[in-house]
Design a protein around this nucleic acid. Sequence first.
DNA 1: GATGCCGGGGA
DNA 2: TCCCCGGCATC
Length: 300
Amino acid sequence: MGVICLFGVMQGADLAGKGWKESLSASYSSSTSGNWSWDASDQSVPSTPSPPLSNDAGKSFLLSSQSDDNIEETESTHFLFEDPIPRKRKVGGQVVAYEKTDLLNSMKVMFKCLWKNCEKVLSTSSGIQRHIRTVHLGRNGDSDYSDGEEDFYYSEIEVNMDTLSEGLSNLTPTSPTTSGPAPVFPVLTCDVSRSEPTHMIHTPLSQSAPSALCHIRTDHAYQGPMTQIRTVSIGEKRQPVNHTTVSKTHTNTTSTSKPTTGTRKPRGEAKKCRKVYGMEKRDLWCTACRWKKACQRFTD
DNA sequence: GATGCCGGGGA
DNA sequence: TCCCCGGCATC
């Protein structure tokens, strides 16, 4: 619950103006909205060895002590953790150190690949970006160049580490070769530059983690089930879950008759894809906007 | 006029 | 189900 609020606080007035991609990195490193310092610049392959794990959340990270490069190839559990380093943030000039997972009931933000049939979950955005770049976009993995397109293909998920580790412990801790089917990556023979993945959010987490404690955030949630899914796009102002959807269904159920003009949702103040990207970059719009539906990326 | 998006329809 | 668009409300 706190998590939602925290993200809901991300209401930088200039976010819309900057574009949400910029907001992504900005918000993660921002001292006002970011929960913890974790922007794209500091997560490129943690070069420093992990400190001794000394907290509950850290236990879960024992699952992986590998580098990003390795974890992209070893994913028997689909959940690979790292970065147990306690985060710090500045609050009012003071540096406040805290472990996010402690603050948020052991919630850990992971990054999940939304590519069709790909259920890869990494713990760093750089990792998932590299994964998307190399595996799905077919780009040079060594290059750090990113035009930001990867942002469209992954989403944050929040995983309750306590329960997750519990769930993982229930899994047979045996050889990775027997732990479930390997993720299937789509064979990309098509032009990925335009073939946006159909983000079937079929809560793959339920297969390997307690889904009830996972909140999935995605930019492309329009096609996805809205229950349990918070369409929190990165770095933009958000409201608690599903408000738009709930209100919509609510109005539909309360009045089955054709809604009059009074029921129309007032236009939100947030800039939507159309405004942000413009007509000329329509391919950058979220699916909903392209279909002239309620924007799912910049919700109000 | 520009924008957001509901409702409807075609493939 | 996906996608597009007419048309209306709102800004």
